[in-house]
Design a protein around this nucleic acid. Structure first.
Lengths: 145, 145
DNA sequence: GTACGAGTTCAAGTGAGCTTGAGGTCAAGC
DNA sequence: GCTTGACCTCAAGCTCACTTGAACTCGTAC
């Protein structure tokens, strides 16, 4: 399996062909050539797609992710920026952890009105702690698949 | 500060007035009345906005969040669904943690090409572990603020 | 050599979550 | 009473990340 056509890549990466074409269009991935009209992808594309998926998860936009891959194709970005992003991720992880605790609590707590439950309130206050405002964990949106 | 007009709420919650009007339109928040034309919001709106921000962070869509607030205004959702969401959050936290480690490593590792660094590769493989495919952490997108 | 089907291009459409702009209203301060 | 300016409504527009559809092209199998 040296080169793959788009369907194989789609299969392995769990990304639809239309999205792969889109990624190529915006320069996120590259095909190694064509077989007739058909794009051929090298195996390194799969690695790249893993990184892309990870980047998306972390809240990078596709254009930001594209910036991460230097012109030579290998990841590169100023170190301070990377560190800043890691710090931001830390805050996000904190918030998500709190939220998960909140959810688990809600699932178990017998109190009919959660807003009255002191534990709920405590968890909720914790949630506000990281980043100036809760809403500052701004950078997320969801595509309904 | 019993009731607040939209600018105050916007200020405290870190959410622009236009967004607050939108939230009201889709039934996510309610004003307690009007002062002339102007919406007046009670202090409980701020709590609600915290929950909304948290929900967004966790990957709920606005309509899902709206569903969480029952008709009586207090949070309510089937327990199994809540637990499922908590589990999903766990996976997401795992992935984000791996990614953070990856970023910190990249920021520190002297290896010129990260793809060659064994530690990088190990971290990357870990990232793929949670959820059938890396790309299955699907539900996220980012609004640029 | 012809049929098939998996791929191709390009333009337009989608949905979420807002934002923007034009034109209007109203309470408060002078 | 007039002005000011913060708010209002409503429709349209925007961004992101894709998806969809129509019309077309090839390599492969028969």
């Amino acid at each position: 399996m040296k080169v793959m056509d788009i369907a194989e890549v789609a299969e392995h990466a769990g990304v639809p062909p239309s999205a792969l074409r889109y990624y190529e269009e915006i320069g996120l991935i590259e095909s190694v050539g064509r077989h007739g009209l058909r794009r051929q992808f090298g195996p390194e594309t799969l690695l790249r797609l893993s990184l892309i998926a990870l980047g998306k998860l972390a809240g990078f936009s596709l254009t930001e992710i594209a910036r991460v891959f230097g012109p030579d194709g290998q990841p590169s970005l100023p170190r301070p920026e990377i560190r800043a992003r890691a710090d931001e991720l830390d805050r996000q992880i904190q918030n998500l952890t709190t939220l998960r605790n909140l959810l688990r609590h809600v699932a178990d707590c017998p109190e009919p009105n959660h807003l009255d439950c002191p534990k709920f309130q405590r968890l909720l206050r914790m949630a506000g702690r990281h980043g100036a405002k809760v809403g500052a964990g701004k950078r997320k949106r969801m595509p309904r698949p």
